[in-house]
Design a protein around this nucleic acid. Sequence first.
DNA 1: TTTCTAACGGAGCGAAATGCTCCGCAGACT
DNA 2: AGTCTGCGGAGCATTTCGCTCCGTTAGAAA
Lengths: 233, 233
Amino acid sequence: MTRMTADGRKTARRAEAERNDHALLAAARAVLATDGAHASVAAIAKHAGVGIGSLYRRYPTKEALFQRLLDIVLDDYLTAAETALADPDPWNGLSGYVTTVIAFAGSLGPIAGTLPLTPAILDKNRRADEAVAAVIDRAHAAGVLRADASVIDVELLIEQLGKSPLIEQLAKQGRTDLSEAAQNAHTRITAIALDGLRATGHPPLPGEPPGPELFTERWEVPGSSEGTAPAGH
Amino acid sequence: MTRMTADGRKTARRAEAERNDHALLAAARAVLATDGAHASVAAIAKHAGVGIGSLYRRYPTKEALFQRLLDIVLDDYLTAAETALADPDPWNGLSGYVTTVIAFAGSLGPIAGTLPLTPAILDKNRRADEAVAAVIDRAHAAGVLRADASVIDVELLIEQLGKSPLIEQLAKQGRTDLSEAAQNAHTRITAIALDGLRATGHPPLPGEPPGPELFTERWEVPGSSEGTAPAGH
DNA sequence: TTTCTAACGGAGCGAAATGCTCCGCAGACT
DNA sequence: AGTCTGCGGAGCATTTCGCTCCGTTAGAAA
């Protein structure tokens, strides 16, 4: 009946359950980022390699899962801001914060406004906001961030760059062969935007310039007869 | 039986049909931009103030409507590029092109890869690509565009900025009171990114810095009891 | 080994959404 | 007045989705 051993450690069963829980949260992030607002529980469970039944054993409802995810992502925001403040260089701290957050911000947009916010979440959010404000204030004070860019400007820029239509579409089409190039392209665009935030001149862009295939190949409809269907925009 | 008058002008009925057609195309743009890939024909018809029946009288299928829309938007791309080339200042031409295209680019992302492309569309696309390449080449030659930014970089940056998660979410929540502030915020972010593309220093950002309400108020779930529910990210 | 049971996966159910058809009606021409 | 083009939208068939329920599996106890 008891599921603890004598010294109180978890049983193997409970260890698997915990792994499943982490897999579910990671899958929820990934599926939310690609499928957007209509991410389905079935897709999340499948992505996690877990049955739907197991998902509903841990979370009473889809909403509860997303609430938990929100809580965790807020922790990530806070950690990123603290890491940024720990960097001795104000600009490196800010740009590192921006790039880090962009990497995981995509998950939250679709669920904004669909969840009741618990007091704990509101508190975490407030602390994260204070931390990022400190990062930005420090950059302003050091004169490395353009003076006319506000905290909200930076936060909205992060949100704008967090969701990449390019990467999402490629993921939806299963074009894993292009995902590396798409990631590189997104990194370059982020660097361009960050340079726009700088008070002074730009460093060179990272990586190689992206090839045109990111544009052309996305338009091919899977069951098409035409082997070459180049089209942009 | 004939629906032309003696001199060949259209009847009033046909004039209304034509107005409806334009309304449908405009509505399709708007709904695609806000609802994304799962924009429904019902939503498009309603947004256009037109019955579903009328929609299906002009277009045999949803796909046909989107194909027509794609054709029109490609015309807009081409016109924007030609306008840019007509500007004597290479940087003004490029930045005007970018801002113009960003304003209407949001419609196309969701339908990429879902439509068979007609030869006419492929040809239009090719011409639009050539025109924008000319705009960018000219900016490169004039030394006003950073040398390490490629044509694809610029095109992907446009796509990235074309869809605004902020504006979309506010539209979905019906917060028309914030839409002006959101538009301003988006303009500023676009300006930041454009400055990142410049070879030299930045001009000041346009408009007023956006207020925090763009972040805080979006998280309020419509039927919430809590009057104030500030939360960002 | 045998028994017990916690945790698992997924078929399937009712509800909701969606593309499209079909039909009754309004009003513009003759 | 009569005709008939074009209109709006209820309704149908299909798909999707959140969630429940149950038979199966594999570690723990005896």
